[in-house]
Design a protein around this nucleic acid. Structure first.
Length: 660
DNA sequence: GCCGGTTACCTTTTT
DNA sequence: GGTAACCGGC
C-alpha cells in the first residue's frame, strides 16, 4: 500500500497528488464529468485512488455531502474517509458513505410512509427472517409428514436468491433446488405469506432494503429527481460484487448528474451466491454510454514470485477480462504447498511457523490465516490457545445471531416496535410455563391495541398465565416510569434477563460477559432505533476466542479470517489452510461450473492478500462425514504448477512434541 | 393440551 | 452448536 500523508495548500496538493500516483491512477482521480469504469487488479492501489479522488473533489469545493461513496462494508468507507481527511482536512468526514444497505435504510426512513409503513419499520436479520418463515411453516402445517420438505433456512435461501437475482421462486427452485421441484406450490405459498407477514408486522429484511429503494426511485419520479440531484458525484467500490438491483439503484441515482465512477475487479468477484453478478462490470459501458475505461495493472503489494503464481491461478479462469499484473518487487520467496498427516499436524505446522516468523521479526499482526469456512479454524484455535498466542477471528461465527444476544435485543426491540411478533414470542417463551401456544395467545391479546408493552402491563390474563408474567410486567413498568438512556435500558434488560440466562445456558458466565460487552457498545448510542439498526446492518463480526471485540486496538495479534472477510486486506505472511480438494473448492461447488469458477476466484483473492510469504497447507487423507468420501488431494487450483513457481513440501507425520 | 427434555443429523461464504 | 421430530410428564 502506498503511503500518503501531507496537508498543503491546494496548488501544491494537486501537484503532489499527481506525483504520488501512477499515470492511470491519476487519470482516474482527475476524471470529472461523465461515467468511468476502473478495472483495478489486486493490490493496484484501488483504495488510494478512491481516497485521492474524494480528497481532490472536496479540495475543489464540491460539497462533501453531495459526494456519495458506496462500499462493501461501512468499515471500508470509514477507512477511506479517514485517509482522505489525513490527506486534506476534516471536510472529508462529511462525505456521504456506507454500504448499499445502510444507504438504502437512510433514504427509506425518510419515505417510510410512501413504502406503506406509516409507523416506520424494523430491520430483521437473517435469523429473524428464518424464524418468521419457521412460524409460517408451522402454522401451515408443513413441518411434519413431508419428510424432505426444505427447512426454514433453505426456504430463506431460496427467497433471498430469488430476490437478489430478480427471478421468481419457481426459477430458483428449478435451477438450483431441483430436488424440491415437487414442493414448488407450497414453497411459493409460504413465500407469499412471508411477504404479507413482513408488511403486516412492519419488517424489512436485507433484500427488501435494496428492492424497496429501487422501487421507491423507480415509481416516484419526483423523489428520484430530488435524491439524484443531491448527489453530484457517485463512487462505487467493489463493483464486481454488486447485484442487478444495486446496479439499477446506481442507475436511478445518477439520472440527474450522471457522474459515476465504479471500481472493481472481475477476477475478485466472490459473492455470486448472494446474487452478485460480475457481468455488471462488463455491462457498465452499455448502461452508461461513453464510459471511460481505465485499468490499474501495477501491483504494489506482492513480490514477483507470489504474483507469478496468482497470475497463473486466475489465468485458468474460464471467463475474465484479460489483464496481467506486474510489480517492481522482483525479489522474494517462492510460495509453498505443504502437506501434513492430519488436521492436528496442520495446526501444529502453522503455529510452529508463525513462531519462527515472529522470532525473525515479523509482528503477529502482519500475519493471517485464511480459510474457506468459519469452522475450518476450530482445531487451530485450540492449538493457538494452548500456545498462548492471542488472535482475532473475523467472519464465520455471527455474534449477533447467538441466542443470548437475540434474547436481550428482543426486549429492546418491542420498545420501539410494538408489533414485533418475533420479539414478543421470544421474550414470552423465555418465561417458565410459557411456550408457543400461550405466547400466541398473549400476543393476540395485546396486538390489537396500539399501546405496545403497556398493553401487556394493563391487560389482565387468566391466573395460570398471570402468575408467570408478573415479573415481566414489573420490568416494563420500571422502564415506563423511568426515562432511561440506551445504555441504562440495556442494564435494566440484563438485570431482568440474567435468571433466564442462567437457566437456559450452562455456559452462562461466558455469555454474561458477552452481554456486558453489548452494554458497552450501547454507551455509544443516543437513540435506541439507531442502536438496533446498526446491530442489524453492521453487526460487529470480530471476536477473540469467540467473545466480542469492543475496541479496535492496534495491538500485536494474529488474524484468523474467512477469505470473504479478508477481501481488500493484506499481510506480510499468509497461510491458507485446508487447501484440500473437497474443502476448497468446497464439495458443494464441484459439480457446477459457475460455482467452481467462483471458488477459483476465491482462491485468487486469498493468495493475493500476501505481500512476502504465501503458504498453502492441506492435511492428507481426511474422511469427510457430510460428503461421505475421502479427501486426499490438494486443491485442484494448484494442479500442474511447476516446482520453481510453487515449492512442494511434505511434513508428513512428524513428532511435534517440541519444547516450548 | 401443552411444555420441556432427548435424540439424531447437518454445518460455505454475508449485507 | 443448532434444528426438528419425538416422547413423557404435568
Amino acid at each position: 500500500m502506498q503511503q500518503i500523508s501531507f496537508k498543503e495548500d491546494s496548488t501544491k496538493n494537486r501537484i503532489s497528488l499527481e506525483a504520488m500516483l501512477n499515470p492511470s491512477q491519476w487519470e482516474a482521480v482527475a476524471f470529472r464529468e461523465g461515467s468511468i469504469l476502473v478495472i483495478a487488479g489486486a493490490g493496484s492501489g484501488k483504495t488510494l485512488t478512491l481516497t485521492c479522488r474524494v480528497a481532490s473533489l472536496v479540495n475543489e469545493g464540491i460539497l462533501p455531502r453531495s459526494i456519495l461513496l458506496l462500499t462493501f462494508t461501512r468499515k471500508a468507507a470509514q477507512e477511506m474517509l479517514r485517509r482522505a481527511t489525513d490527506l486534506l482536512d476534516n471536510r472529508c468526514e462529511k462525505v456521504s458513505g456506507g454500504t448499499f444497505h445502510s444507504f438504502a435504510n437512510t433514504i427509506l426512513r425518510q419515505y417510510a410512509a410512501e413504502m406503506g409503513f406509516p409507523n416506520g419499520y424494523a430491520i430483521i436479520d437473517r435469523t429473524d427472517a428464518e424464524d418468521l418463515i419457521g412460524m409460517i411453516r408451522k402454522e401451515m402445517n408443513f413441518s411434519s409428514k413431508i419428510r424432505s420438505f426444505p427447512t426454514k433456512k433453505t426456504l430463506m435461501d431460496i427467497f433471498s436468491r430469488a430476490a437478489n437475482k430478480v427471478l421468481s421462486i419457481e426459477d430458483i427452485v428449478f435451477m438450483e433446488y431441483v430436488h424440491f421441484s415437487s414442493d414448488i406450490e407450497t414453497i411459493a405459498r409460504i413465500h407469499r405469506e412471508y411477504r404479507s407477514r413482513k408488511i403486516l408486522h412492519g419488517f424489512v429484511d436485507y433484500d427488501d432494503l435494496l428492492i424497496d429503494l429501487r422501487n421507491l426511485l423507480y415509481e416516484h419520479a419526483e423523489i428520484c429527481d430530488k435524491i439524484s440531484l443531491s448527489y453530484q458525484y457517485i463512487m462505487v467500490d467493489e463493483y464486481q460484487d454488486t447485484n442487478k438491483i444495486q446496479a439499477e439503484i446506481l442507475y436511478l441515482l445518477s439520472t440527474a448528474n450522471k457522474n459515476v465512477m465504479v471500481v472493481g475487479d472481475d477476477s475478485q468477484s466472490i459473492y455470486a451466491f448472494r446474487g452478485a453478478n460480475f457481468k455488471n462490470i462488463m455491462e457498465f459501458p452499455k448502461v452508461f454510454p461513453a464510459a471511460k475505461i481505465i485499468r490499474l495493472e501495477e501491483n504494489y503489494r506482492s513480490v514477483q514470485p507470489i504474483l507469478t503464481l496468482t497470475n497463473m491461478i486466475i489465468d485458468r479462469a474460464v471467463e475474465k477480462y484479460s489483464k496481467r499484473l506486474f510489480t517492481q518487487k522482483k525479489e522474494g520467496s517462492t510460495p509453498i504447498l505443504i502437506n501434513t498427516a492430519d488436521e492436528k499436524n496442520q495446526s501444529l505446522f502453522v503455529v510452529q511457523t508463525i513462531y519462527e516468523l515472529n522470532k525473525r521479526g515479523i509482528p503477529f499482526n502482519d500475519m493471517a490465516i485464511l480459510f474457506r469456512a468459519g469452522f475450518h479454524s476450530f482445531d487451530l484455535e485450540i492449538e493457538l490457545g494452548r500456545e498462548g498466542i492471542s488472535f482475532k477471528k473475523v467472519g464465520g461465527f455471527k455474534f449477533m445471531e447467538s441466542a443470548h444476544i437475540k434474547d436481550v435485543l428482543a426486549h429492546l426491540r418491542v420498545l420501539s416496535h410494538p408489533h414485533d411478533r418475533l420479539s414478543w414470542y421470544r421474550i414470552l417463551s423465555l418465561i417458565d410455563n410459557i411456550g408457543p401456544q400461550k405466547a400466541h395467545m398473549i400476543y393476540e391479546r395485546i396486538a390489537g391495541e396500539q399501546a405496545g408493552y403497556l398493553s401487556l402491563v394493563n391487560n389482565k390474563f387468566p391466573s395460570h398465565i398471570e402468575k408467570h408474567i408478573d415479573r415481566l410486567k414489573q420490568f416494563f413498568m420500571l422502564l415506563h416510569t423511568k426515562n432511561l438512556s440506551v445504555c441504562e435500558l440495556g442494564e435494566a434488560v440484563l438485570k431482568y434477563y440474567t435468571p433466564a440466562l442462567k437457566k437456559k445456558f450452562d455456559d452462562y458466565p461466558k455469555r454474561a460477559k458477552d452481554l456486558e460487552q453489548l452494554v458497552v457498545i450501547m454507551e455509544r448510542y443516543q437513540s435506541l432505533v439507531a442502536f438496533l439498526t446498526d446491530m442489524a446492518l453492521e453487526p460487529p463480526n470480530t471476536s477473540s476466542e469467540n467473545r466480542l471485540e469492543t475496541d479496535v486496538s492496534t495491538d500485536d495479534r494474529l488474524t484468523l479470517s474467512t477469505i470473504h472477510s479478508a477481501k481488500g486486506l493484506e499481510w506480510h505472511s499468509i497461510f491458507i489452510i485446508w487447501a484440500l480438494d473437497g474443502r476448497f473448492p468446497s464439495i458443494h461447488a464441484i459439480d457446477n461450473e459457475a460455482s467452481l469458477e467462483e471458488e477459483r476466484r476465491l482462491m485468487y483473492v486469498a493468495a493475493t492478500r500476501a505481500k512476502e510469504n504465501l503458504f498453502f497447507i492441506y492435511p492428507q487423507d481426511i474422511y469427510d462425514r457430510s460428503a461421505g468420501m475421502r479427501l486426499s488431494r490438494p486443491t485442484r487450483f494448484l494442479d500442474d504448477i511447476p516446482d520453481e513457481i510453487l515449492e512442494k513440501r511434505s511434513e508428513g507425520i512428524r513428532d511435534w512434541s517440541y519444547d516450548i
